[in-house]
């Protein structure tokens, strides 16, 4: 591994965290304004992380320590495969199969870490998150299958580059039902309402976060920041034409996140079984129709 690559990886990790935390801060501001509040400053998330890392941490056992680190490492590794501008990735590859595979490590690490805390609220929260994955991963996999069948490539960079040439080439136009399905699934993936079952403060006292404090809570914040970068980046590359510059990429990511926050503000939370059913019925139906139209009727291929 060359020193340039090491620098790239460190630099990009910093970039993911800064973008993710900025989005988190802006998200809180947007929500506040929609609720006729002033809200905290946009940099509040940075302050929260600094504060958390400066406080004493309580760990229940080493599994809890390792689980959270594994989760953060898994998500950062996923982000390395995410194409940013002109299809460039720090890892040099952007296989969508690898991205989807690595993304689950984040959740599994979190599951391992917080389950070790022994708090039933945390365990219920994680079991909800894993159950919800069944709800959104199947529709998402169907959409990706539809795209791969058209393009003949599983590289996210190739999918992004194939949309070059104007808005009319974006997959949001070419795969409209797929986009609808992905947008619904994205809401669940990002853990916002009506699918924020994992956290659900009034039900399970913030679930996985309930036993986290100090550095562990700080890591959870960073985890969410990187998760935001990866998941919004996935939507940008899959449907919004990728990006030719970094500014364009982050701008498009923000549009995706902004839409998600607006939906989050006006919806309540389903029960977990209702949420999974809703994902299968709506996101699943849209994705299945899109897959059938694409695969067997060849409607969207060029």
């Amino acid at each position: 591994m060359s020193s340039k690559m090491i620098l790239d990886l460190f630099g990009m990790t910093f970039f993911y965290i800064v973008v993710g935390l900025t989005f988190m801060g802006l998200g809180r501001k947007i929500t506040a304004r929609l609720q006729r509040r002033v809200g905290p400053p946009w940099y509040q998330s940075f302050l929260d992380v600094f504060k958390c890392f400066s406080k004493t941490s309580i760990s229940h056992n080493y599994i809890m320590d390792l689980g959270l680190i594994m989760a953060l490492a898994g998500l950062i590794a996923t982000a390395y495969f995410m194409p940013v501008a002109k299809g460039w990735t720090p890892a040099g590859s952007s296989s969508i199969v690898v991205i989807l595979y690595l993304m689950t490590i984040g959740y599994l690490g979190m599951a391992m870490g917080v389950s070790a805390s022994g708090n039933p609220n945390a365990t219920i929260g994680i079991s909800r998150a894993l159950a919800l994955m069944f709800g959104y991963e199947i529709p998402f996999a169907m959409i990706i299958l539809a795209m791969i069948s058209v393009l003949g490539s599983s590289s996210l960079s190739d999918i992004a580059m194939s949309q070059a040439g104007g808005i009319q080439n974006w997959n949001i136009i070419r795969f409209p039902l797929g986009f609808l399905a992905a947008e619904i699934a994205f809401q669940a993936m990002i853990g916002e309402k009506p699918y924020d079952h994992m956290i659900a403060p009034a039900e399970i006292a913030s679930g996985p976060m309930v036993e986290l404090g100090g550095k562990f809570l700080g890591i959870a914040f960073l985890l969410h920041a990187v998760q935001l970068f990866v998941e919004t980046g996935l939507m940008v590359n899959l449907f919004l034409g990728g990006a030719s510059t970094w500014y364009e990429f982050v701008g498009k990511q923000f549009v995706v996140y902004f839409t998600s926050m607006v939906i989050n503000t006006v919806f309540a939370r389903y029960r977990i079984e209702q949420g999974i059913k809703h994902l299968w019925v709506w996101a699943g139906s849209f994705a299945a129709i899109q897959l059938v139209l694409t695969r067997y009727f060849d409607i969207f291929s060029r």
């Binding site: 929609l34 006729r36 009506p194 009034a202 919806f267 309540a268 939370r269």
Partner: peptide, 16 residues
């Protein structure tokens, strides 16, 4: 009621 099921906007707006 909104807050109990995650609809915090109702809580904030009605508190205003």
């Amino acid at each position: 009621v909104g807050g109990a099921i995650g609809l915090y906007s109702a809580t904030y707006l009605m508190m205003a």
